[in-house]
């Protein structure tokens, strides 16, 4: 009796969630998968086939864009790690008491603004008629307006900015739990800064590093607003192609296939990263 009552209440509690998973997560993804295997033979007849996937590998524009997006995302992730590590180290190991909390919060607040607002802020700074350009001219370092927007550097600045917090938080968490004696022992045994960092700190912080990198990489690879707004029309980001196929060209079959490929390829890259770093997803994501 007791157990059947608790079964019932479990079902009652869980039903809305299961409906959500089935109707709004599984079904849409299955439909996307189905559409991606359709081939348009004429304007009103569709057949099954792999043509959309073949297009990805045969039309160099598609896979080149993907490779470019992937490489730039990896670079962005690496750069974010390099920039975030000292900040996390300072917050976790050097800051004490009140200032620790304040520094952490101060790092958090800019990320409460939406991606659109943050990106727009950078556009005000970097565009031709923007602040940086006018400062350069006022200082006499440039003769005319300088366009700093709409290039790869601008895109990477925007992406690193968007990813920073997601790198800092896991790093602070792991570095916080590190025993001070470990570092001291390293120095006592004659290790220099480089050795201690390489042999003690980095191995200890590895779960945090990997988890930060995965989140930043996925965020970067799947981002749409930042590359489009800061990279301009030619930023050639993979998500942009999905958008173009769906919205501009009404070629849903191709767009769906590109979406499926984005999911698969990003999972493969994350999986490879886990293998190479010798971490497991469960350990990394807590």
């Amino acid at each position: 009796m007791r157990s059947s009552v608790s079964r019932l209440s479990l079902w009652l509690l869980l039903t809305p969630f299961l409906l959500w998973i089935v109707l709004l997560v599984l079904l849409p993804h299955l439909q996307m998968l189905r559409v991606s295997f359709l081939v348009r033979e004429s304007w009103d007849t569709l057949a099954w086939g792999f043509e959309q996937y073949q297009n990805f590998f045969t039309e160099s524009y598609y896979w080149r864009t993907f490779v470019r997006t992937g490489v730039m995302s990896l670079f962005t992730t690496f750069l974010t790690l390099i920039i975030a590590f000292p900040i996390a180290w300072y917050i976790a190991r050097l800051a004490r008491g009140r200032s620790k909390g304040i520094l952490f919060l101060a790092c958090l607040i800019p990320f409460w603004a939406s991606e659109l607002v943050r990106t727009y802020g950078w556009m005000i700074l970097l565009r031709e008629s923007g602040l940086f350009s006018s400062w350069l001219q006022a200082l006499g370092w440039a003769d005319g307006p300088v366009e700093m927007l709409y290039n790869d550097v601008a895109v990477i600045i925007g992406l690193v900015y968007n990813g920073l917090l997601f790198m800092v938080v896991p790093l602070v968490t792991t570095l916080d739990g590190m025993d001070e004696n470990l570092v001291e022992a390293g120095y006592d045994l004659g290790g220099g800064h480089g050795t201690v960092l390489r042999e003690i700190v980095v191995p200890w912080a590895m779960p945090g590093i990997v988890s930060g990198c995965i989140v930043v990489f996925m965020l970067t690879l799947g981002s749409y607003l930042t590359p489009v707004l800061m990279g301009g029309k030619d930023s050639a980001w993979f998500t942009e192609q999905i958008f173009t196929q769906f919205i501009t060209r009404f070629n849903w079959e191709q767009g769906a296939a590109l979406g499926v490929l984005l999911l698969i390829l990003s999972s493969v890259i994350v999986w490879l990263g886990l293998k190479i770093s010798g971490q497991s997803l469960r350990k990394v994501m807590g």
């Binding site: 849409p28 559409v35 690879l221 998500t239």
Partner: peptide, 11 residues
């Protein structure tokens, strides 16, 4: 990625 969620829901 958000965009995958978006296109699957639209579909």
């Amino acid at each position: 990625p958000e965009i995958v969620l978006a296109i699957s829901l639209l579909a």
